[in-house]
Amino acid sequence: MVHLAVRLAPGASADRIDGWDKDAGGRPVLKVRVRARPVEGEANAALIKLLARALGVPQSAVAIHRGGQSRTKRVRVEGLPDPDLKARLTDL
């Protein structure tokens, strides 16, 4: 199980992963945009779907661990070691 920090931007023109950035504390955070609006969990669902597709894992392996109501989220990914996760996200 791996935890991933994500900064989500809902209401974008396209679903895409913009790459890595740093948060205010200097920690790495993955920047992600989704078309879905933050209404009734639609943006969170779109985030899970996009990350699962990009990482090549089932949607059931991806879950929001913390920050469901926030732009900055902690996402849990099951069944993928940390080096593989970072390699798959770097190749995007």
Rank of each mutant, 00 (worst) to 15 (best):
Ile64Val: 13
Ser13Lys: 12
Ser70Thr: 09
Leu85Cys: 04
Glu78Gly: 05
Glu78Trp: 08
Asp23Asn: 15
Gly68Leu: 11
Glu78Thr: 03
Trp20Pro: 11
Ser70Gln: 15
Ser13Arg: 12
Gly79His: 02
Trp20Cys: 11
Ser60Pro: 01
Leu89Lys: 05
His3Gly: 08
Val2Thr: 10
Ile48Met: 04
Leu30Gln: 14
Arg35Lys: 15
Leu89Glu: 09
Gly11Ile: 00
Leu55Asn: 02
Val62Lys: 01
Gly11Asn: 13
Val34Ser: 09
Arg35Pro: 04
Arg37Trp: 05
Gly19Asn: 12
Ala36Cys: 05
Arg66His: 14
Trp20His: 09
Gly79Trp: 04
Ala24Trp: 10
His65Glu: 15
Asp23Leu: 05
Ala61Met: 03
Glu42Val: 00
Ala9Trp: 03
Pro10Arg: 11
Pro28Gln: 12
Glu40Ser: 14
Arg88Val: 01
Pro28Arg: 10
Lys86Asn: 05
Val2Trp: 01
Leu4Lys: 04
Val34Cys: 06
Pro83Arg: 04
Glu78Val: 03
Asp18His: 02
Ala54Arg: 06
Ala14Gln: 10
Arg66Val: 03
Trp20Leu: 07
Leu55Tyr: 03
Leu89Phe: 01
Ala14Arg: 13
Pro28Lys: 10
Asp23Thr: 05
Pro38Glu: 12
Gly25Cys: 07
Asp84Thr: 00
Ala46Gly: 08
Arg88Lys: 11
Arg33His: 11
Pro10Leu: 08
Leu8Lys: 09
Asp18Ala: 14
Pro83Lys: 01
Pro38Trp: 06
Lys73Met: 06
Glu78Asn: 09
Arg71Phe: 08
Ser60Cys: 05
Ala61Asn: 11
Ile17Asp: 13
Leu4Gln: 12
Arg66Ala: 13
Pro83Tyr: 05
Ile17Phe: 00
Arg16Glu: 15
Arg76Gly: 07
Leu50Ala: 08
Val62Asn: 03
Gln59Trp: 03
Lys73Ala: 09
Ala14Cys: 06
Asn44Pro: 05
Asn44Ala: 10
His3Leu: 12
Leu30Asn: 14
Gly79Arg: 00
Thr90Tyr: 00
Leu47Met: 08
Arg74Pro: 06
Glu42Gln: 15
Asp18Gln: 13
His65Tyr: 14
Asp23Tyr: 12
Gly25Glu: 15
Leu92Ile: 11
Pro81Trp: 02
Val29Asn: 14
Arg7Asn: 15
Ile64Ala: 08
Leu85Met: 08
His65Ile: 00
Arg71Cys: 10
Leu89Ala: 07
Ser70Pro: 03
Val34Asp: 13
Ile64Asn: 06
Gly41Thr: 07
Thr90Phe: 00
Ala87Asn: 03
Arg74Ala: 10
Val29Gln: 15
Gly79Asp: 11
Leu85Ala: 02
Val57Asp: 10
Arg74Trp: 12
Pro10His: 09
Val34Thr: 07
Arg37Ile: 00
Gly67Ala: 11
Asp21Ser: 15
Arg76Gln: 14
His3Asn: 11
Leu55Val: 01
Asp82Cys: 01
Ala61Phe: 05
Ala54Phe: 00
Ala45Arg: 14
Asp18Tyr: 00
Ala63Pro: 08
Val29Ala: 11
Val62Trp: 02
Ile48Val: 12
Arg53Lys: 12
Asp15Thr: 02
Leu30Glu: 12
Ala61Trp: 02
